[in-house]
Amino acid sequence: MTEPIKQPVREVSRGETILKINNLRKVYGDLEVLKDIDLEIKKGEVICVLGPSGSGKSTMLRCLNLLEVPTAGTLELKGEMIFDGKRTEKLDELRQETGMVFQSFNLFPNMTAKENVSIAQIRVRGRKKQDAHRRSIEELTKVGLEAKVDEYPDRLSGGQQQRVAIARALAMDPEVMLFDEVTSALDPELVKGVLDVMRGLADSGMTMICVTHEIGFAREVADRVIFMDGGYIVEQGPPDDVLGNPKEERTKKFLGLVLEH
Protein backbone atom coordinates (compact mmCIF):
# COMPACT_ATOMS: atom_id res chain seq x y z
CA MET A 1 0.00 0.00 0.00
CA THR A 2 3.01 2.30 0.08
CA GLU A 3 2.37 5.12 -2.32
CA PRO A 4 4.94 6.48 -4.75
CA ILE A 5 7.71 8.60 -3.31
CA LYS A 6 7.39 12.35 -3.78
CA GLN A 7 7.31 13.16 -7.46
CA PRO A 8 10.00 15.54 -8.66
CA VAL A 9 8.35 18.94 -8.51
CA ARG A 10 9.90 22.01 -9.99
CA GLU A 11 11.95 23.93 -7.50
CA VAL A 12 10.86 27.50 -6.89
CA SER A 13 13.23 30.08 -5.54
CA ARG A 14 12.49 32.62 -2.87
CA GLY A 15 10.03 35.27 -3.98
CA GLU A 16 8.56 33.21 -6.80
CA THR A 17 4.86 32.38 -6.71
CA ILE A 18 4.25 29.01 -5.08
CA LEU A 19 0.47 28.92 -4.59
CA LYS A 20 -2.07 30.92 -6.49
CA ILE A 21 -5.85 31.03 -6.27
CA ASN A 22 -8.12 32.86 -8.66
CA ASN A 23 -11.81 33.76 -8.40
CA LEU A 24 -12.25 31.26 -5.62
CA ARG A 25 -15.81 30.73 -4.44
CA LYS A 26 -17.21 28.34 -1.88
CA VAL A 27 -20.91 27.83 -1.31
CA TYR A 28 -22.60 25.62 1.30
CA GLY A 29 -26.26 25.33 0.37
CA ASP A 30 -27.52 28.91 0.48
CA LEU A 31 -24.48 30.20 2.31
CA GLU A 32 -21.74 31.78 0.24
CA VAL A 33 -18.69 31.54 2.46
CA LEU A 34 -16.09 32.70 -0.03
CA LYS A 35 -17.22 35.18 -2.67
CA ASP A 36 -14.33 35.98 -4.94
CA ILE A 37 -10.88 35.41 -3.61
CA ASP A 38 -7.64 36.04 -5.49
CA LEU A 39 -4.41 35.35 -3.71
CA GLU A 40 -0.81 34.76 -4.65
CA ILE A 41 1.59 33.31 -2.16
CA LYS A 42 5.30 33.68 -2.74
CA LYS A 43 7.96 31.33 -1.51
CA GLY A 44 9.32 32.42 1.86
CA GLU A 45 6.37 34.67 2.58
CA VAL A 46 4.70 34.70 5.99
CA ILE A 47 1.07 35.68 5.71
CA CYS A 48 -1.31 36.20 8.58
CA VAL A 49 -5.03 36.11 7.87
CA LEU A 50 -7.26 38.01 10.29
CA GLY A 51 -10.97 38.54 10.42
CA PRO A 52 -14.10 38.01 12.48
CA SER A 53 -15.45 34.49 12.84
CA GLY A 54 -17.53 33.50 9.84
CA SER A 55 -15.45 35.71 7.55
CA GLY A 56 -14.33 32.67 5.54
CA LYS A 57 -10.67 32.73 6.57
CA SER A 58 -10.50 29.12 7.70
CA THR A 59 -12.45 27.95 4.66
CA MET A 60 -10.01 29.78 2.40
CA LEU A 61 -7.09 28.09 4.16
CA ARG A 62 -8.74 24.68 3.79
CA CYS A 63 -9.25 25.34 0.09
CA LEU A 64 -5.49 25.81 -0.28
CA ASN A 65 -4.87 22.09 0.30
CA LEU A 66 -8.29 21.10 -1.04
CA LEU A 67 -9.61 19.76 2.25
CA GLU A 68 -12.55 21.83 1.04
CA VAL A 69 -13.31 21.56 -2.64
CA PRO A 70 -14.06 25.05 -3.98
CA THR A 71 -17.36 25.63 -5.75
CA ALA A 72 -15.58 27.66 -8.44
CA GLY A 73 -12.18 29.14 -9.16
CA THR A 74 -8.74 27.76 -9.78
CA LEU A 75 -5.78 26.70 -7.70
CA GLU A 76 -2.24 26.52 -9.02
CA LEU A 77 0.84 25.07 -7.36
CA LYS A 78 4.13 26.32 -8.78
CA GLY A 79 2.40 27.23 -12.02
CA GLU A 80 0.74 23.83 -12.39
CA MET A 81 -3.04 23.67 -12.40
CA ILE A 82 -4.20 21.56 -9.45
CA PHE A 83 -7.87 22.48 -9.44
CA ASP A 84 -9.45 23.93 -12.57
CA GLY A 85 -12.88 24.73 -11.16
CA LYS A 86 -14.25 21.22 -11.56
CA ARG A 87 -11.66 18.54 -11.30
CA THR A 88 -8.72 17.96 -9.05
CA GLU A 89 -5.43 16.81 -10.45
CA LYS A 90 -2.22 15.98 -8.70
CA LEU A 91 -3.93 16.12 -5.32
CA ASP A 92 -1.13 13.99 -3.86
CA GLU A 93 1.44 16.48 -5.05
CA LEU A 94 -0.46 19.37 -3.46
CA ARG A 95 -0.94 17.59 -0.16
CA GLN A 96 2.72 16.63 -0.06
CA GLU A 97 3.80 20.21 -0.63
CA THR A 98 1.50 21.64 2.02
CA GLY A 99 1.55 20.85 5.71
CA MET A 100 -1.41 21.74 7.86
CA VAL A 101 -1.86 22.33 11.58
CA PHE A 102 -5.36 22.41 13.05
CA GLN A 103 -7.03 24.27 15.88
CA SER A 104 -7.93 20.98 17.59
CA PHE A 105 -4.47 19.37 17.04
CA ASN A 106 -5.96 16.17 15.60
CA LEU A 107 -3.14 13.97 16.79
CA PHE A 108 -3.80 10.26 16.33
CA PRO A 109 -4.67 9.15 19.89
CA ASN A 110 -3.68 5.53 19.28
CA MET A 111 -0.07 6.44 18.47
CA THR A 112 2.80 7.90 20.50
CA ALA A 113 4.22 11.31 19.60
CA LYS A 114 6.97 9.63 17.62
CA GLU A 115 4.54 7.37 15.78
CA ASN A 116 2.29 10.34 15.02
CA VAL A 117 5.19 12.07 13.34
CA SER A 118 6.39 8.89 11.60
CA ILE A 119 3.27 7.30 10.13
CA ALA A 120 2.94 9.50 7.05
CA GLN A 121 6.69 9.54 6.47
CA ILE A 122 6.56 5.75 6.23
CA ARG A 123 3.27 5.34 4.36
CA VAL A 124 3.36 8.38 2.09
CA ARG A 125 7.02 9.29 1.68
CA GLY A 126 8.08 5.64 1.70
CA ARG A 127 10.81 6.18 4.27
CA LYS A 128 12.18 3.22 6.22
CA LYS A 129 10.85 2.91 9.73
CA GLN A 130 14.20 3.61 11.41
CA ASP A 131 14.83 6.61 9.18
CA ALA A 132 11.36 7.97 9.87
CA HIS A 133 11.77 7.49 13.60
CA ARG A 134 15.14 9.21 13.56
CA ARG A 135 13.64 12.13 11.67
CA SER A 136 10.67 12.25 14.05
CA ILE A 137 12.92 12.50 17.08
CA GLU A 138 14.83 15.26 15.29
CA GLU A 139 11.64 17.23 14.59
CA LEU A 140 10.26 16.65 18.08
CA THR A 141 13.55 17.89 19.54
CA LYS A 142 13.28 21.05 17.46
CA VAL A 143 9.91 21.82 19.04
CA GLY A 144 11.28 21.09 22.51
CA LEU A 145 9.68 17.69 23.06
CA GLU A 146 12.67 15.34 23.03
CA ALA A 147 11.53 14.06 26.45
CA LYS A 148 8.03 13.22 25.18
CA VAL A 149 8.69 11.14 22.06
CA ASP A 150 7.18 7.97 23.52
CA GLU A 151 4.16 9.58 25.19
CA TYR A 152 0.62 9.18 23.93
CA PRO A 153 -1.27 12.40 23.16
CA ASP A 154 -3.55 12.11 26.20
CA ARG A 155 -0.46 12.46 28.40
CA LEU A 156 0.52 15.76 26.75
CA SER A 157 -0.73 19.29 27.39
CA GLY A 158 -2.57 21.11 24.60
CA GLY A 159 0.52 23.14 23.82
CA GLN A 160 2.67 20.02 23.62
CA GLN A 161 0.12 18.28 21.42
CA GLN A 162 0.09 21.24 19.08
CA ARG A 163 3.87 21.21 18.85
CA VAL A 164 3.76 17.49 18.00
CA ALA A 165 1.26 18.38 15.27
CA ILE A 166 3.67 20.98 13.89
CA ALA A 167 6.53 18.45 13.98
CA ARG A 168 4.29 15.92 12.23
CA ALA A 169 3.64 18.32 9.37
CA LEU A 170 7.27 19.45 9.11
CA ALA A 171 8.62 15.90 8.93
CA MET A 172 6.96 15.63 5.52
CA ASP A 173 9.18 18.42 4.15
CA PRO A 174 6.34 20.65 2.98
CA GLU A 175 7.04 23.83 1.02
CA VAL A 176 4.10 25.66 2.55
CA MET A 177 2.70 25.43 6.07
CA LEU A 178 -0.94 26.20 6.75
CA PHE A 179 -1.89 27.11 10.32
CA ASP A 180 -5.58 27.16 11.18
CA GLU A 181 -6.09 29.10 14.43
CA VAL A 182 -3.56 26.85 16.08
CA THR A 183 -3.51 28.66 19.42
CA SER A 184 -7.26 29.24 19.78
CA ALA A 185 -7.89 26.05 21.75
CA LEU A 186 -4.94 26.55 24.10
CA ASP A 187 -4.81 27.83 27.65
CA PRO A 188 -3.16 31.27 27.66
CA GLU A 189 0.04 30.10 29.33
CA LEU A 190 0.60 27.50 26.61
CA VAL A 191 0.20 29.86 23.65
CA LYS A 192 3.70 31.29 23.82
CA GLY A 193 5.45 27.93 23.37
CA VAL A 194 3.55 27.30 20.15
CA LEU A 195 4.04 30.85 18.83
CA ASP A 196 7.77 30.58 19.57
CA VAL A 197 7.97 27.48 17.40
CA MET A 198 6.13 29.30 14.61
CA ARG A 199 8.38 32.32 14.96
CA GLY A 200 11.44 30.13 14.60
CA LEU A 201 9.92 28.50 11.56
CA ALA A 202 9.24 31.89 9.97
CA ASP A 203 12.83 32.93 10.64
CA SER A 204 14.08 29.80 8.92
CA GLY A 205 12.39 30.94 5.72
CA MET A 206 9.34 28.65 5.68
CA THR A 207 6.40 29.81 3.62
CA MET A 208 3.53 30.17 6.07
CA ILE A 209 -0.11 31.10 5.97
CA CYS A 210 -1.54 31.58 9.44
CA VAL A 211 -5.19 32.13 10.19
CA THR A 212 -4.93 33.66 13.63
CA HIS A 213 -6.34 35.97 16.27
CA GLU A 214 -2.89 36.78 17.60
CA ILE A 215 -2.49 40.38 16.42
CA GLY A 216 0.85 40.76 18.18
CA PHE A 217 2.22 37.71 16.40
CA ALA A 218 0.97 39.03 13.06
CA ARG A 219 2.55 42.42 13.63
CA GLU A 220 5.87 40.91 14.58
CA VAL A 221 6.22 38.00 12.15
CA ALA A 222 4.06 38.57 9.09
CA ASP A 223 5.35 39.91 5.81
CA ARG A 224 1.77 40.48 4.78
CA VAL A 225 -1.47 40.72 6.71
CA ILE A 226 -4.78 39.90 5.07
CA PHE A 227 -8.02 41.08 6.58
CA MET A 228 -11.11 39.13 5.55
CA ASP A 229 -14.77 39.81 6.17
CA GLY A 230 -17.97 38.45 4.67
CA GLY A 231 -16.19 36.13 2.26
CA TYR A 232 -13.96 38.80 0.74
CA ILE A 233 -10.41 39.95 1.23
CA VAL A 234 -11.11 43.47 2.47
CA GLU A 235 -7.58 44.72 2.84
CA GLN A 236 -4.05 43.41 2.66
CA GLY A 237 -0.53 44.69 2.95
CA PRO A 238 2.44 44.95 5.30
CA PRO A 239 1.45 44.67 8.96
CA ASP A 240 2.40 48.28 9.65
CA ASP A 241 -0.17 49.42 7.10
CA VAL A 242 -3.04 47.01 7.75
CA LEU A 243 -2.67 46.89 11.52
CA GLY A 244 -1.11 50.30 12.14
CA ASN A 245 -2.97 52.39 9.66
CA PRO A 246 -5.92 50.50 8.16
CA LYS A 247 -7.71 52.12 5.23
CA GLU A 248 -10.99 50.23 5.34
CA GLU A 249 -13.74 50.97 7.86
CA ARG A 250 -14.33 47.29 8.55
CA THR A 251 -10.68 46.67 9.35
CA LYS A 252 -10.62 49.62 11.73
CA LYS A 253 -13.76 48.42 13.47
CA PHE A 254 -12.44 44.86 13.83
CA LEU A 255 -9.06 45.97 15.14
CA GLY A 256 -10.79 48.34 17.54
CA LEU A 257 -12.81 45.47 18.97
CA VAL A 258 -9.85 43.10 19.18
CA LEU A 259 -7.35 45.54 20.63
CA GLU A 260 -9.75 47.12 23.11
CA HIS A 261 -9.26 44.56 25.82
Binding site: G99, F102, V124
Partner: peptide, 14 residues
Protein backbone atom coordinates in the same frame (compact mmCIF):
# COMPACT_ATOMS: atom_id res chain seq x y z
CA UNK B 1 -13.86 12.75 14.91
CA UNK B 2 -13.74 14.19 11.40
CA UNK B 3 -10.47 15.93 12.21
CA UNK B 4 -8.71 12.56 12.26
CA UNK B 5 -9.48 11.91 8.61
CA UNK B 6 -8.60 15.51 7.73
CA UNK B 7 -5.27 15.31 9.53
CA UNK B 8 -4.42 12.05 7.77
CA UNK B 9 -5.42 13.41 4.36
CA UNK B 10 -3.53 16.66 4.92
CA UNK B 11 -0.41 14.54 5.50
CA UNK B 12 -0.87 13.08 2.03
CA UNK B 13 -2.47 9.76 2.97
CA UNK B 14 -5.07 8.38 0.59
Amino acid sequence: PRGQMEAARSLGMS
